[in-house]
Amino acid sequence: MENKVLENKRKYMNPYLAGFLLGLVIIFAFYYTGRGLGASGAIKSAVVASVDAVAHNHALASEFYAPYASKEESPLSSWLVFEIIGVMIGALISGIIAGRLKLKVEHSPKISSKTRLIMAILGGVLFGIGSQLGRGCTSGAALTGMATLSTAGFVSMLAIFGTGYTFAWFFRKFWI
């Protein structure tokens, strides 16, 4: 066990260095395209594309889908979709280098894999709703928003992590 932990430590980048590099990536993104990072937006594009493919008229009638579904090009041809494809490639490269590619369900020893998966779905659903309502997720609203020093970014960050800390105690069994 001790060895494994040490080994993991070595394979993870120093967090401050990682943060610094991530900051450079954000500056790069803003300098070239005028926008920052994001993630939930790409999944939203996938949802819109699916709804549009299955029920085009329904998509056009909905105020939520229509702005994207009524355009000529596919909702998947968006900046964030390309960015997320990049994220996948980048994560895969790093996973290969660090030798972390392994199919598994990661969970606390106090809960079963099944419980973990149910909680993951539930968390995902909440994140899906929250990111739409909050106009962006942790990367798009909180991280990028803080980088530009926008008030919305700070409000978003405080709301997400404030809630996390407030209710962490009730969910401790899932993690520790």
Binding site: G123, L126, S131, G134, A141, V155, A159, I160, W175
Partner: peptide
């Protein structure tokens, strides 16, 4: 919506353990 969305995401984070990215 920023506040309510953030609170919902906070719950999502603590329950699901991830964020989208």
């Amino acid at each position: 919506s920023t506040l309510i969305g953030g609170v919902i995401m906070g719950f999502g984070f603590i329950i699901g353990g991830y964020c989208p990215g």
